[in-house]
């Protein structure tokens, strides 16, 4: 058999997987596309092993390893996806943009959200404010 058939098939399969990784929105589907790419590699390994026929059978042995690693990868990947889904409420990759570079005015509201807690902490810690409020209360109480 011509080596070109499995090689071309592997190349096309790899590119289909590549497209899936880049284009899919759901992260589980992205993982599936990764599997496709890994399988393309496996196909290559097997085909070249058959062609070269070395005594170590390196191609087939490495294929086995790859399959194993792929299994571990999909397990861990799905665990991560699940955790992200649990914390972020979505598994869509293009909504997970925590690393985006936001302009300063967009970053401010997040600070403002954190501010009230901080302010209240400060107010509690500040003895002057506490005494002021205390004295105000003291004045207000008799009235």
């Amino acid at each position: 058999m011509h080596l070109a058939y499995p090689a071309v098939l592997a190349a096309l399969l790899f590119c289909v997987g590549l497209y899936g990784v880049l284009a899919r929105r759901n992260s589980v589907l992205v993982l599936m596309s990764v599997e496709l790419m890994l399988n393309a590699v496996n196909l290559n390994l097997v085909a070249f092993d058959v062609w070269l026929r070395d005594t170590l059978h390196a191609g087939q042995a490495l294929t086995l390893f790859t399959i194993t690693i792929a299994a571990a990868e999909i397990g861990l990947g799905l665990a991560i996806v699940l955790m992200v889904f649990r914390t972020q409420g979505t598994a869509d990759i293009d909504r997970l943009r925590e690393l985006a570079d936001r302009p300063a005015d967009q970053a401010l509201p997040a600070d403002a959200d954190a501010d009230p807690d901080l302010a209240s902490d400060l107010a509690a810690a500040d003895p002057d404010t506490a005494s002021l409020t205390g004295s105000a209360r003291g004045k207000a109480d008799p009235a």
């Binding site: 992260s27 589980v28 993982l31 999909i74 397990g75 799905l78 598994a91």
Partner: peptide
Amino acid sequence: LVLFGLMLTKA
């Protein structure tokens, strides 16, 4: 596993 993943992420 993938099917479980899809299920668990409420696909």
